[in-house]
Write a protein that binds this DNA or RNA. Sequence first.
DNA 1: CGTAGCTTTGATGTAGGTCAAGAAATGTGG
DNA 2: CCACATTTCTTGACCTACATCAAAGCTACG
Lengths: 250, 250
Amino acid sequence: MTEPNAGLPIQDSPFARKLSAFVRLSQTDLAVMSDLYRRRRVFPVGVDVIHQGQTDQCAYVLASGWACSYKILPEGTRQIVDFQIPGDFLGLRSVLFRTADHNVEPITPVHASEVTQRDLLAAFAETPRLATAVLWAASRDEAMVVEHLVDLGRRSATERMAHFLLELGARLRLVGMGDRTGYLCPLSQYLLADALGLSAVHVNRVLRELREEGLVTFQKGRVTFEDYDGLVTFAGFDRSYLDHEGPLLM
Amino acid sequence: MTEPNAGLPIQDSPFARKLSAFVRLSQTDLAVMSDLYRRRRVFPVGVDVIHQGQTDQCAYVLASGWACSYKILPEGTRQIVDFQIPGDFLGLRSVLFRTADHNVEPITPVHASEVTQRDLLAAFAETPRLATAVLWAASRDEAMVVEHLVDLGRRSATERMAHFLLELGARLRLVGMGDRTGYLCPLSQYLLADALGLSAVHVNRVLRELREEGLVTFQKGRVTFEDYDGLVTFAGFDRSYLDHEGPLLM
DNA sequence: CGTAGCTTTGATGTAGGTCAAGAAATGTGG
DNA sequence: CCACATTTCTTGACCTACATCAAAGCTACG
């Protein structure tokens, strides 16, 4: 496998694409980002990127591949808090704390750039606009976790799944990895179950139901929207929480 | 009713107590905080502090009273995302975005200090240590939302309730509003239901069960821990996510 | 080309929802 | 300080969404 994004101009990286949706990045911003991208690491499936209780904290920017962050319960079950796609931060919160309070594991092989606390603070000092953009991205992530919480608390299994597939689609489109017709998705039904608070068996049934209703199809690693508007209506999907455009500082 | 905290020295305010748990605040920090406390407002029960879609964004620091933040679903049900107690920020995230993505409503009459985006950025520029402390507080809040998400996804109704009551107790102790024996709590069973993703009827049953097991009692507006350690074990409560001590910058 | 991880489906069990109705508590106006 | 209204709590009977258990067909990759 060739190094992903190897020759890619920085402004076409998922990270830059995502932040550009929020602030216009100057040449200086891009140069500073390029610096952040320097220390590249690879994580094969099975090797945790971040491990609960770990203390040598640094964060990563995901360059390619998918990951998930989760917490393990005493009984051995787990709850996936969020999936990370290219352009997302991994473990940004644990940089602030002495120890990580959750795990991050690769779902596919992951290429990620290590960002130390020092790097990040230095970058922020150099270009406040970048700081704003990162802060915005962090807030958007938090808004997504909140929406996920609403999913678990008050939506039926089917609505939950529909809502989840739509949100993921919107996120992927932002970094150029999907369009209105659908996207490639490496998540197994077990992973979906751990994220949506369901059993894997029920995930399967729910997917069948959505397929038979002619709303979405999730087969062979691809999510295909058969009736996008119908799905949006069914899920009560209001993408305003993702669209927060409009910069804090220009 | 007399103005709460009227003559209270700033360092004894819930906000200062909470942040002090994380960084040692200098006289300068306290003076800047005192400034933030200037523009005081009162919200009676029934008047939203923040309303979804609202665009004139400012945040508040809760001085006294309880509030909750929630989202409304198309069907009319709602999911409470978090409760806010004195010392907590209200709507910090919506300062970043143009429009609020959730509601905040008082549970008891609320006194809160208005903090504009400008105030906050100015204060941060003046004392970076305060900025760090606020960032830490925001991260702790996010960690709590994540734990809440785990509650909804993977814990039984009874564990969920136990976990919730313990977490609330830990938060209240931090601002001096509770101890190991329990705390005063103005939440109705309807509010608990909307927060824990249960029906009000089931909340009642769950509380009875916990009472009959001799673990906690929630009656007449007071939560009393009858067997603290037993409850911690039962709930699988690991307070490390609240205890993140150790400053990022000293 | 075998074995381990996915997906699919059926049968059965249960946690928690909904409906209903009475008892406490709390608040409000006279 | 009392009468009435309103919210909150409590409990019982019944029902449904989703879990669990079990087993068979797929896919994939070493």
